[in-house]
């Protein structure tokens, strides 16, 4: 997904001479295509994320569209206030690019787990928060971000993220992209944990349950009509995100159901519990949080059982 981002950014920069890329000394090899093509539009600011956010603010004030790149925790948590008081307050086209969503860097430990980033960035009303599900969608998202006048947060997985079947790289603002039709329940995923969600839907299909599967890459601060419409026809929904459900997709869907007065049961899969604990591969970490395909399928089934139990009483 990192490489797709950079390819997309090079395309964007070829068309838009105002595009610049800043990194806080991360992205070894990954950023080379941009740095080689546009040496005057690339700055490694050093290990200084707060300064990077401020520099991007100043550059954007001189008419530039600036992408600032680091590991997702550092790119958001470390310089949140600088981003809030700079690009967000001044409504400037600065896009924070955070690589390593959720547990992408599983064995690097809790300092590298990006779990709260979506919640804090969604709290800024004019920031477009985007978590692509696969490399093709990441490329489309870069194109879309390149056309907006204000700030954004692009949350990437890392390398080796598989393609999500049925998504075909589609991306649109506010829109849950339906990648598999179904009836009884829906599963909505955001970000690089979408493939696990599709695998969970496959397990349900083996049991004769056709779950509707959607990818919600753009996570707006408030419920949208499109999301409300998707949920209107559902008896139950499972949200799937590689991060805290508080302030994330789960919270967005809960608010959508509540505000829309929808008759839809909700189960939220995501990061819970303490930051400290055993670490391991991303797969190990996902399983520990109930975000592997088997756990997700079980949670969806539980949703159906509860629904049935309620219906009988």
């Amino acid at each position: 997904m990192r490489n797709a981002f950079v390819d997309g950014l090079v395309e964007l920069a070829l068309a838009d001479p105002s595009v610049m890329l800043l990194t806080a000394d991360l992205g070894y090899n990954v950023l080379d295509p941009f740095a080689h093509e546009f040496p005057d539009r690339f700055i490694n600011v050093g290990v200084a994320e707060q300064n990077m956010a401020g520099i991007a603010t100043g550059l954007a004030m001189t008419g530039r569209r600036v992408f600032i790149y680091s590991i997702a925790t550092f790119a958001t948590l470390r310089c949140f206030e600088q981003f809030r008081n700079g690009p967000a307050l001044h409504n400037l086209p600065v896009c924070v690019v955070g690589v390593g969503a959720g547990y992408s860097y599983g064995n690097l430990g809790p300092s590298h787990f990006a779990l709260e980033d979506v919640a804090i960035m969604r709290a800024l009303p004019n920031v477009r928060v985007v978590a692509p599900a696969d490399p093709d969608q990441a490329r489309s998202a870069v194109r879309a971000i390149g056309a907006i006048p204000g700030p954004a947060y692009l949350r990437l997985g890392k390398g080796g993220n598989p393609t999500v079947p049925g998504l075909d790289g589609r991306f649109a603002w506010n829109l849950p992209e339906i990648i598999r039709p179904g009836s009884e329940i829906a599963m909505i995923a955001t970000g690089a944990v979408a493939p696990e969600t599709v695998a969970a839907a496959d397990r349900l299909a083996l049991k004769g349950i056709q779950a509707r599967v959607a990818v919600m890459a753009h996570l707006p601060p408030e419920p949208t009509e499109e999301l409300t419409e998707l949920l209107r026809g559902c008896r139950g929904v499972l949200t799937v995100e590689e991060g805290r459900v508080t302030g994330g997709l789960g919270a967005l869907v809960a608010q959508t159901i509540s505000q829309g007065g929808l008759n839809c049961r909700l189960q939220m899969a995501g990061a819970r519990g303490e930051l400290a604990g055993p670490v391991g591969s991303r797969e190990f970490m996902l399983a520990g949080q109930g975000l592997d395909a088997d756990s997700l399928a079980d949670q969806a089934l539980g949703l159906l059982k509860r629904k049935t139990a309620t219906a009988k009483t």
Partner: peptide, 20 residues
């Protein structure tokens, strides 16, 4: 040009302006 109030952040913005 630049809204401020949180100490320590302005010089970075000034750097960005200077580069631009």
């Amino acid at each position: 040009d630049v809204g401020t109030g949180s100490l320590g952040q302005g010089l970075s913005v000034a750097c960005g302006l200077a580069v631009g």
